[in-house]
């Protein structure tokens, strides 16, 4: 198809200022349109590329939407059982102390079935990085209630809205983790606007630098959308996220250099 408004004089290799990193494998992502997983994957890979640590990085993927993360990230990876990624990562880091080790987990994986593994890896101060995508829903299985589902939020298993009396409270696991002494750095970010994406990348870079300096565990929550699960368009979902998720899950650093902010 003929492309209008192309500028051949600008469109030269030496003028490239942004391009998907080659550490993202060149295949279509399995995520829904507008999903924050793809963006977070790319930021993670940009950090690994910029630090030149592809050869020294071992990742652990979860069960959930990002179960296939190892098909997209051009690094060695292990697929964990549901919730167990921090256990795998703890062992890997202890057996390979000079490798960069991270887990990539969703809210069901990290804050429900894997709560014990998460809390204890954090509490031991494992020198790893945990990247936690919180979209308040089980995306992969079709939009069921997650530990982080907001009060009143409708999901496939809370069709009339999350009722606190019968279904319990949404879990602010990141706040809990920030209080554990083994954890060095805790932050909550987002990836729905360019500025948020850039901040998330900086947070990931900081986390990997902390790992390099063997200063303890770093924990990055990314509040993200699940437009399929929320039954909104991607742009509507991002707006809904700003209006509903961010007040309950406020963005920003919670702990820096082992000190609560």
């Amino acid at each position: 198809m003929e492309e209008l408004f192309a500028k051949p004089e600008i469109r030269k290799p030496e003028n490239i200022v942004y391009k998907k990193t080659n550490l993202m494998i060149d295949r279509p992502l399995s995520y829904c349109p507008g999903c924050g997983h793809g963006t977070t994957h790319r930021m993670l890979m940009e950090v690994i590329e910029e630090m030149g640590i592809q050869e020294n990085t071992i990742g652990v993927s979860p069960v959930g939407c990002s179960v296939l993360a190892y098909d997209f990230l051009d690094i060695d990876m292990l697929g964990a059982a549901h919730g167990r990624a921090p256990a795998l990562a703890s062992a890997i880091k202890r057996l390979w102390p000079n490798r960069f080790v991270f887990t990539y987990q969703g809210d069901g994986d990290l804050a429900a079935i894997g709560t014990a593994e998460t809390i204890h890896a954090c509490n031991r101060g494992e020198n790893i990085t945990i990247i936690f995508i919180n979209n308040g829903i089980y995306g992969m299985t079709g939009g069921q209630m997650a530990p982080t589902t907001l009060e009143g939020m409708r999901t496939a298993t809370s069709p009339y809205g999350r009722d606190i009396a019968t279904m319990g409270y949404p879990l602010k696991i990141t706040e809990l983790i920030a209080h554990l002494p083994g954890v060095n750095y805790v932050t909550r970010q987002a990836v729905h606007t360019p500025n948020h994406v850039r901040k998330t990348k900086k947070a990931i870079r900081k986390a990997f630098e902390i790992q390099k300096e063997k200063k303890g565990l770093s924990f990055i929550e990314v509040v993200s959308n699940c437009n399929s699960g929320w039954k909104l368009t991607p742009v509507q979902a991002n707006k809904w996220m700003e209006e509903n998720m961010f007040p309950f899950y406020p963005l920003g650093d919670m702990k820096i250099d082992g000190k609560l902010v």
């Binding site: 292990l78 256990a87 795998l88 703890s90 062992a91 890997i92 014990a116 593994e117």
Partner: peptide
């Protein structure tokens, strides 16, 4: 050799899974 007391048998075996996946004798 690394020796680690895990928080549960579930965590123990998944630590073994992690170590084994990196070729270590665990």
């Amino acid at each position: 050799m690394v020796v680690l007391q895990a928080e549960s048998e579930v965590a123990s075996i998944n630590m073994v899974y992690g170590g084994a996946g990196t070729g270590k004798k665990v």
